[in-house]
Design a protein around this nucleic acid. Structure first.
Lengths: 135, 135, 135, 135
DNA sequence: GTGGTCTAGACCACT
DNA sequence: GTGGTCTAGACCACT
């Protein structure tokens, strides 16, 4: 489980961890049920404080993406689709995507280019997931 | 120029204003060269602090999306494509889109559905722009 | 003795077991003197660690709700009313109920609706107990 | 805004703050729109660390009970009923009430006594709210 | 002046 | 050994 942080970014570190973990799951690098590093170990790996990892894990837990157990630590939710689908994040998601696409339009990026990027990214996730490891 | 804010959102107000303005431009509601409300008037309309509008406009200016003139006020940059294209926002944009798409994948949204949503949104922007623009 | 656990809940597993057992007694499914599953069997049934069941049983024992005997295993306390009444849990109970009712009020649930729910639940317990109990 | 904490309780301090604030709102001591103390000031008043207050406020915010603004601080959500009603906490609430009622039944508290306590508590909230202050 | 983030370290609870 | 809570203090972002 390797992941790159940008300590100079305006995006809080705990949010970056959350985002990278979500991508790792989509990539198939972390399969449902797979273990995440312990908060303390991950903090050492990332050279940050364990409280920051804690906050990221708490965020992922509240989103239904991971499950946390005091003994066995954090794992990707075994039924992550169901656990996340229950939350009413859809509206927010569509709004964020709309904003992103508007930025591309304003910057004059051709529609076809955006679509290709979306398609390629989605296919990348799909491909990875097929063969996907157990983390 | 009407726009809806969510005061309960985690997204800062100034960021929401910036996002909605970008969408309004993509929608063709604000053509290149078109005037934005004065910061004071906009603040009254939105029932928020004048400094918050100021901050949003400053952000848009730094992104090359609008131009601010002491006399004529804020206008959409006449050559917004060129002005924005020069900035190195591409990498960040791709990263944010990648995170958004990963969320959809994790939540089990079918690839076709995501693509349809992207295509529909882009076409909505294109259609609006055709009739509306003056640039 | 069947009981449903929510592994994603913030409520610890041992607490959930304790709560469900209390409800089973109120429901008349477990009469005073009735046997509970052995800790090991229960752990297998619930697919959890044996120590967790142990902790739940210990909690119930300290509350005067069950009795644990090395030979006969765990049974609902034969005189559960007396054994539990002696403990000074009243204050805590009232505080917890007060918090719950405050939540309903804040959420705008009509007083009549709350009362009906309370009455219905209590009657459900009473009905079950009549036919079921042996105490 | 005065509130009593039990530092020896198993209930985390931030949870106690959250519970007492909810009760203060139901009591009408804190009307919708009313200000809560700043995190730092509240921490001094309660003789605890401001991070703990921060966590309580964050919990209340995520529940839709309060609204937090970097400038004006925390206020009871102006439309707290709507903001909290949107969340799917109903099921959890009913489960917790069911457990509480089961405890009363097991302890042999007469049904009438429980109902009276519920009614009295609800009426206490209602009465306070009618004349209710602006905090 | 307000809340938000991050670091640092102690101690506790769960398993 | 794991995560959870609390304290303590620094610095930053928003308004």
């Amino acid at each position: 489980m390797h992941l790159v942080l940008d300590l100079d970014s305006e995006v809080p570190i705990y949010q970056q961890i959350r985002d990278r973990v979500v991508e790792a799951i989509a990539d198939g690098l972390l399969a449902p049920g797979a273990s995440l590093p312990s908060t303390r170990q991950f903090a050492v790996d990332l050279a940050i404080n364990f409280h920051t990892v804690n906050k990221a894990y708490d965020l992922l837990r509240r989103e239904g993406i991971i499950r946390i157990n005091r003994k066995s630590g954090a794992v990707v939710h075994p039924d992550v689709r169901r656990a996340t689908a229950e939350l009413r994040v859809g509206v927010d998601w569509e709004q964020r995507l709309r904003t992103l696409l508007a930025e591309a339009v304003v910057r004059g990026v051709p529609e076809g280019e955006v679509l290709t990027y979306v398609r390629t990214t989605l296919e990348g996730f799909a491909k990875q997931s097929e063969g996907g490891g157990q983390g």
